[in-house]
Amino acid sequence: MAFKIIEGCVNCWACEPLCPSQAIALAASHFLIDARKCTECEGEFAEPQCASICPVEGVILDGLGVPVNPPGSLTGIPPERLAAAMAEIQAR
């Protein structure tokens, strides 16, 4: 199984130096994971490194195609609370 970086990657470079398998490289569009090299960090780290530092929700998929960082997981605000949080922030 391997992780995948999809469109939406902002090319911030954070993941590239962390990969224990050197599976991540900059490509024409954005960074890409070489599926042949990716081990999902198994045996290396408790958590997959690229997905643990990626600042953008939804752009890294696990082996089953599921986003590792789903909407709301990185901002700390689940989608159903978004409108309320926005109102709160705008009242500042």
């Binding site: 902002v10 090319n11 911030c12 954070a14 590239e16 530092i53 600042p55 953008v56 990185l74």
Partner: peptide, 16 residues
């Protein structure tokens, strides 16, 4: 130095 180890709410990592 492109990579960052934290997220600040005032920063967008799409910096180019």
């Amino acid at each position: 130095a492109p990579a960052c180890n934290i997220q600040c709410h005032y920063c967008n990592r799409k910096y180019d």
